[in-house]
Nucleic acid binder design. Sequence first.
RNA 1: UGGGGUAUAGUGUAACGGUAGCACAACUGACUCUGGAUCAGUUUGUCUAGGUUCGAAUCCUAGUACCCCAGCCA
Length: 588
Amino acid sequence: MADNEPAPPPGNAGGSLNFIHQIIEEHNKTGRFAGRVCTRFPPEPNGYLHIGHAKSICLNFGTARRYGGRCNLRFDDTNPEKEEQEYVDSIMEDVRWVLSGTLPAGRTDPWDGLYYASDYFDQLYEWAIVLIKKGKAFICDQTPDQVRETRGTPNKPGTNSPFRDRSVEENLKLFEGMKNGEFPDGSRTLRAKIDMAHANINLRDPVLYRIMRATHHRTGDKWCIYAMYDYAHGQSDSIEKITHSICTLEFEHHRPLYDWFINELGIYHPQQIEFSRLNLTYTVMSKRKLLLLVKDKHVRGWDDPRMPTISGLRRRGYTPEAIRAFCERIGVSKYEGTIEMAWLEDALRDDLNKKAQRRMAVLRPLKVVIENYPESQTEELDAVNNPEDPSAGSRKVPFGRELYIERTDFMEDPPKGYFRLSPGKEVRLRWAYFLKCNGVIKDAAGNVTELRCTYDPATKGGNAPDGRKVKGTIHWVSAAHAVPAEVRLYDHLCKVPFPEDVPEGQDFLVNLNPNSLEVVTAMVEPSLHFSPLPPGEGSGVRVGDKFQFERLGYFSVDKDSTPGKLVFNRAVTLADTWAKMEKKGNRQ
RNA sequence: UGGGGUAUAGUGUAACGGUAGCACAACUGACUCUGGAUCAGUUUGUCUAGGUUCGAAUCCUAGUACCCCAGCCA
């Protein structure tokens, strides 16, 4: 994909071509486009991009890159009622981010051309006149209801509009009147004159232009008629000399209509190729549904880390490399399946395991007092920053008489196979000493509030000179030095793998996971403190910095952080064999 | 009694008439100062029924299942 990025590991895509690349290579062989490859990514600026768009971005930009071609970013902004500049801005930011690190030196934008369908409004209007003059389009005065009623159904042909046989002169005059604002919104349309009995409903005299007085984010109030997507899209591709117009499956039966326009107009003919859109378990992926989640405040915004949006994934802690690896792994086909969320999560773990420095953080603290450790003593111990990357070096972590450990790392009455701390048992404190539990202090309700332990001074660094082994190693932070931090623990947005599968009359909202966000106050090691300074200035962590909290998962510094308060998002947990064993035990 | 698509392990994706492979998941085991990572191994598959062929996931015929289409949305 990129010059400075290693080739993807031999996954399912390794070595073999996806069906789109096969088609392109066939075209290159036969000279259909003279060896030229030009693709485009054509979002409508009516919402934020999601992981499904990332698949399309990787496909379109990756294909262009692969064949030495070009890829445009084009905003299909033909419906001013739904489109906003905010969305344009977010889309550009997200495309840049997904592709960041893959660009040749000196380039900031991944697109070879930045276009808007609104750039072509004048040309589209001229072409409409051409169609009218050819007798291939007419002004229709039917109401929306009448249009619907006369369109027929999949099983029943439609009937001709009574306005279908207006003269060319009258059509021309009325169309100009439409453009000049002489008629009210919705009172007339320009329609193609094709075949009201066509088996493909898209060819039953589709609407080309509607009257709509809405301020367009780019053309302002210049127009009060707007082309329909179907009329604009194919010609936009044609204008840009797109060779391979890659889109999702639902546009397959629009292709004959696009071809009809191109042929009637006698203009350059791109090749449209359809692939199946991405579906993921435990989430929803349509802009309509995501908009609903935002508008009705089921989540905290488009970039809520539970959202499958690119901005949500970014905030959660995903890296562009992980997103790209995921898109590479899932492949491209026309089969409409659903990818398991575990694939996405695995891609992130795979990336961050190599890159993220390790830190110790205790999510649900349980106090430990080491009775044989001197009262006022503290010391600094060496901790390796990343065992996968020696160049990451090491750091000092403070140790003292009082510590916090994870509540789940202690059990008073442990089951077989539990090798963390329990009365009389010994564990290793990561990078520190062996620790043995001698007593348990409880509150009136019987909850464990504190552990009384002893340590073995001879095991400093984590190894026993007598060669004795411990099975468990647990993480900890020194109570005297610990820094409280807000940690947001995320779970799947939806509580079932296929949230759209609901009984009649219900919608996916019933399947939202009520426990998708849990907020805890964790204790983290003091090397983690927030810096508001730009990267490179002073010490501390910045928004977006990622760490592995040992044994817990990967965490990213959230933008809500302030110098007085760190906020982390849990991007993904670590694989947890013990949790799996427990789950299996419970099932029996 | 419409049209357009798609069917290969649990999930995706290869194989383009010649040993059904890979990844994720699951399960074993090894190793480990993260029950992480890593390594080794195991289980599970060509929608069905016929046909052509020495040989079929692939070609033919007939079925079956699922998806999309009746916006002046994209």
